[in-house]
Amino acid sequence: MTSYGRGLRGLSVATIATITVALALVFFYAPLDANQGFIQKIFYIHVPLAIVALCGFVVGGLLAIAHLRTGDRKWDLRSYVAIHMALIFGVGGLITGSIWAKASWGHWWVWSDPTLVSFLIVMLLFATYQPLRFSIEDPERQARYASVFAIVAGAFVPLNFIAVRMAQGVVHPRVLTLTGGRLPGSMGLTFAVSLLGIALLYATLWNYEIAAKRARMQLRRLRRAALGDDAAGALGRSAAPS
């Protein structure tokens, strides 16, 4: 049996250090945005959260491919946790985005902004991941179907963004274009450190969640081995891989 949460300590320390540096950079180093002023500081938390969430969804799909290829259930667990964490980060991205919209446009929700809208659609789709898992009883089938869903939904993420972007004019405050072209160096640096910090946080929590899940699975297995199958059944069905 491997140890739970291997490498978690190093990862946590790196995360804390990076996020501390990022916060310091955001509030003491990065210059005020010429157009948006202080409100633009939301950008350093909102955009990394959203980017990491979207990457998490896609990674969940890739891990699901590994599951279907190998048939090894550990990949399903990884895919599940990747999507689970991405959902949490996505909620953060949505709320902070909404706050930003309220501050700069005066409305909590702006339909004219394709990035916000497509992000909402992606969230709505992935929000069905857990109900889907939960309503399939057989664990093997649950893992397989969840992987199929994760692959389809992961591929849907970029498609959806293209479609919604084309449907509406581009209104999102492109403080940072994908090429990073128009961003002053100091803001770019701050953003990069923030993104790294959030990504590290994602990795840490992913690891932590996996460790917790594996410990629980091990506990359940021990129970079953020691007390027979009905003892473990009492724990109830779950949407999580088992």
Partner: peptide, 24 residues
């Protein structure tokens, strides 16, 4: 867009920025 959304003064923007980080 930015013409419609002028820069907010610090005392208006502060709570929003704080709220965003508190959410996190």
């Amino acid at each position: 867009v930015f013409a419609v959304a002028p820069a907010l003064p610090l005392h208006t923007a502060g709570p929003y920025v704080a709220a965003a980080y508190i959410v996190f």
